[in-house]
């Protein structure tokens, strides 16, 4: 009898350690479905609102602050030619495939405004590759001139350079931590050297247990 119990116990241990093999499933989200919240890193729930907020702020300020324009439309609206030179990740997390999406979202959102004319990414990439230019060195007039020359050869002159930067700040409390994400858009007028900066931030708490949220934020 004891032997039977022993066998049973050993078997049970093995069985408890295993489970069932499941196939993977997927479903299409409805428009009003909320984004999944990344448990270890920022995801759609972080980047989308950050982009929306920073772009909206940028467009709002650009109406009044920026004076250099290339030309005006038939209606008299000033149009600014913008060269968007990429998203720089200075946060402590890799952003993975979101890097491309963040670029495209910002590019499309600003491009929808009547006051901005975004130069196609393909021209910008080709020109940057040609002159071996990293985004961060484009504050130097010499590099700006090289890029301008390369883009002008493709008949794509620009007045502004748009930089996007992601940064983060982490606050730890034992095993839990809070990470503040900041998306900064900086529009640099290459003629005057003046820049217009707008940013949006979002805070996220990461916890090892459900109680972590309650303990730190009282939710």
């Amino acid at each position: 009898m004891k032997a039977l119990q022993l066998t049973g116990c050993a078997l049970l241990t093995f069985v408890l350690l295993s489970g069932c093999r499941n196939r993977q499933y997927a479903h299409v989200l409805d428009r009003d479905d909320q984004d999944m919240v990344g448990s270890h890193e920022a995801g759609a729930e972080t980047w989308k609102p950050l982009i929306d907020e920073s772009v909206a702020s940028m467009l709002g300020r650009a109406c009044s602050d920026v004076s250099t324009v290339s030309y005006t439309t038939a209606g008299g609206t000033p149009v600014r030619n913008v060269c968007f030179v990429g998203v720089e990740n200075r946060s402590s997390e890799p952003i993975g495939d979101f890097r491309e999406q963040i670029y495209e979202y910002i590019d499309a959102a600003i491009g929808r405004s009547d006051q901005f004319d975004m130069i196609s990414r393909r021209y910008v990439e080709a020109a940057m590759s040609e002159i071996r230019c990293r985004p961060e060195v484009l504050v130097l007039p010499q590099k700006q001139a090289e890029l301008q020359a390369a883009l002008q050869r493709a008949e794509q002159p620009f007045d502004f350079i748009l930089f996007a930067k992601i940064s983060s700040g982490t606050t730890r409390s034992n095993k839990d931590y809070q990470r503040d994400y900041l998306l900064t858009l900086e529009l640099l007028d290459i003629h005057t050297g003046k820049s217009l900066k707008e940013s949006a931030s979002l805070r996220k708490g990461y916890h090892k247990t459900r109680l972590g949220e309650l303990r730190h934020y009282g939710n």
Partner: peptide, 11 residues
């Protein structure tokens, strides 16, 4: 190959 991703390359 993308100059825009230079920070990613460095990383």
């Amino acid at each position: 190959e993308q100059a825009m991703n230079s920070d990613l390359t460095d990383r």
